[in-house]
Amino acid sequence: MVVLVVTAVPAGLRGHLTRWLLEISPGVYVGHLTRRVRDELWERVVELCKDGRAIMIESARGEQRLYFRVHRHDWEPVDFDGVQLIRRPSAPSARYSGMRSGWSAASRYRRGRK
């Protein structure tokens, strides 16, 4: 079983994916493919994706029975003691992003009026 989720990809790639998989929602494709077709389809997705993103979830042997492939995505698969997890990027803290800590000027003004 294969689940493929694409975001912001060209229409030509979406049309190509419908030849092999069933589109159950915009950008979400599901189907059962052989290993060879699945690998070549992933190569095609990476080749035609341009500025878009893609995540493929496929059946695999092992305890989890899942394997993730990611292309140009912020979230990345990480092997953690034999289990594949998805790590999302950490949120930047306020002091590193250039924002001041504390209350805003408008908030201080409203609190002062009471």
Score class of each variant (00 low, 15 high):
Val46Asn: 05
Glu43Ala: 15
Ala105Trp: 09
Leu4Val: 02
Pro77Val: 08
Ile55Tyr: 01
Ser97Phe: 00
Ile24Pro: 07
Leu21Thr: 01
Phe80Val: 15
Gln84Met: 07
Ala105Val: 05
Ala94Asn: 08
Arg14Gln: 10
Arg19Asn: 10
Lys114Ile: 04
Gln84Ser: 09
Arg88Val: 00
Val46Lys: 15
Val9Trp: 04
Ala54Asn: 02
Gly31Asn: 00
Asp79Ser: 12
Tyr67Cys: 05
Arg72Val: 04
Ala106Asp: 15
Arg88Ile: 00
Leu22Met: 07
Glu58Tyr: 00
Glu58Asn: 01
Ser25Trp: 02
Glu76Thr: 08
Arg108Pro: 09
Leu41Lys: 05
Val46Asp: 06
Arg72Thr: 07
Gly12Ala: 10
Arg19Gly: 06
Ile55Ala: 03
Val9Met: 13
Thr7Tyr: 15
Phe80Lys: 09
Gly52Thr: 02
Arg35Ser: 10
Val46Phe: 08
Leu33Val: 00
Ser107Met: 12
Met1Pro: 10
Val45Met: 07
Tyr29His: 04
Ile24Thr: 13
Leu17Ser: 05
Arg36Asn: 10
Ser90Val: 04
Asp81Arg: 14
Arg100Leu: 13
Glu76His: 08
Ala106Ser: 13
Ser107Tyr: 12
Pro26Ile: 05
Glu47Ile: 10
Tyr109Trp: 08
Leu66Ala: 05
Glu63His: 14
Arg110Trp: 14
Glu23Arg: 04
Glu58Leu: 01
Gly62Pro: 13
Glu63Trp: 15
Gly112Asp: 14
Thr7Asp: 15
Leu66Asn: 05
Arg35Tyr: 07
His16Met: 06
Arg111Cys: 15
Val46His: 08
Trp103Gln: 15
Lys50Val: 09
Arg95Pro: 11
Leu21Ala: 02
Arg100Glu: 14
Ala54Gln: 04
Arg87Leu: 06
Glu47Gly: 02
Asp81Ser: 11
Val45His: 05
Phe80Trp: 12
Glu76Ser: 11
Arg113Cys: 09
Gly15Met: 02
Leu85Asn: 03
Arg19Glu: 11
Arg44Trp: 06
Phe80Asn: 04
Arg44Lys: 13
Leu13Ile: 13
Val3Thr: 11
Asp51Val: 14
His16Cys: 02
Arg35Asp: 10
Leu85Tyr: 10
Ser104Trp: 04
Glu40Ser: 13
Glu23Gly: 01
Ala94Val: 12
Gly12Met: 06
Val3Lys: 12
Arg61Ala: 13
Arg72Gly: 05
Gly102Ala: 11
Arg14Asp: 03
